[in-house]
């Protein structure tokens, strides 16, 4: 924190403490009531069995809900899908985002702002709207994906693009990449624009130009930005909800569940509140771990 300026400022301490408290307290109240107390509630609730309709009828089950999770095939499917989405998102969104940013930074002369604006656009559209737009593209009857495949003589999947979990998870990835790659591109582009021209001049004298210079000189220099990009993408991948909720509802047979949709299913469709809490705690631990990583990396940056 900032230790210097308090000493340079001369002010009356008591007056200052009052002002500071007035300014700080609202934020703490909001976060405490709606984030921290519910977080504690999630942990406490995960040791009980109860349903929405019998709020006053809590039954202590100890670690029962966690044991249930380890034996629940669909929990592991959901967790596995989250990890697939993490890795695929890093490759598709951060990877392609980096290539796009590099091209916009130094690869092309004309149309930079136009390309940047177009590619960033999907970021401002709600994920539900994005999902519904892609739903018509993937539709087996009216979708243009089928139409394009047929027009060039390729066969289309018999259960549709969203009916077979092995295919639909990739369709979800393509849609997520459509929405988020532009964000990564802009983030990385800001990092690239911080690299000074002298660095490239020096590299050129050493014989490194184009892709070579990018790989060996530019990428290591924007390492911190890339770490932030990967962390944001990873955190986002654990928050995935809308695409799956709209595309497949987690089906068929729970094969496309992720933690978010599975928690929702357990809590609000099956009314297993205690079990949903236990799953939430697992998500909470993953989220706090990622948050801790982000804090560490941003301090370095």
């Amino acid at each position: 924190m900032n230790k210097n300026n308090t000493q340079t400022n001369s002010f009356s301490l008591s007056n200052d403490k009052v002002s500071a408290t007035i300014l700080l307290v609202p934020a703490l109240i909001f976060c405490t009531i709606f984030i921290f107390i519910p977080a504690i509630g999630t942990i406490v609730g995960s040791f009980y069995s109860y349903s929405l309709t019998s709020m006053n009828n809590w039954k202590w089950v100890g670690f029962g809900n966690y044991v249930k999770a380890t034996q629940d095939e669909y929990f592991w499917v959901a967790l596995k899908n989250n990890f697939i989405i993490v890795f695929a998102s890093i490759v598709l969104q951060v990877g392609v985002g980096t290539i796009l940013a590099a091209i916009l930074d130094r690869g092309i002369k004309y149309g930079r702002v136009i390309f940047r604006t177009i590619i960033f656009t999907p970021m401002v559209i709600s994920s539900v709207a994005v999902s519904l737009i892609w739903l018509i593209i993937y539709d087996p009857n009216v979708g243009i994906l089928n139409a394009i495949f047929k027009s060039i003589g390729l066969s289309t999947p018999s259960k549709g693009w969203l009916g077979d979990p092995n295919i639909s998870i990739w369709m979800i990835m393509i849609t997520a990449a459509w929405q988020n790659t532009g964000f990564m591109m802009v983030l990385i582009l800001a990092g690239l624009q911080g690299v000074s021209k002298e660095v490239y001049d020096a590299a050129e004298i050493d014989g490194a130009t184009g892709v070579k210079a990018f790989w060996y000189i530019t990428l290591p220099m924007i390492r911190n930005v890339l770490i932030v990009a990967i962390l944001i993408t990873t955190i986002g991948a654990f928050k995935v909800f809308e695409f799956i909720f709209v595309f497949t509802q987690g089906g068929p047979a729970n094969a496309t569940q992720v933690l978010g949709t599975y928690i929702y299913l357990q809590a609000f469709n099956l009314l297993h509140m205690g079990y949903a809490n236990a799953l939430s705690v697992i998500l909470l631990i993953i989220a706090l771990f990622l948050g801790w990583l982000q804090l560490k990396s941003s301090r370095k940056a």
Binding site: M1, N2, K3, N5, T6, D16, A20, L24, A27, L28, C31, I35, F36, I37, P38, A39, G41, T42, G45, I235, F238, K239, F241, L259, G260, I263, Y264, A267, M273, A276, N277, S280, V281, L283, L284, A287, L288, L290, G291, W292, Q294, L295
Partner: peptide, 29 residues
Amino acid sequence: SRIDFKINKFVYLLIVAGFAIPPAAVLVP
């Protein structure tokens, strides 16, 4: 950013923790 309260570091850590917690992790309560 301006006042050197002893608890500031703790408050900042709380805020970062709050940033990390997604709504899905506290949905039921």
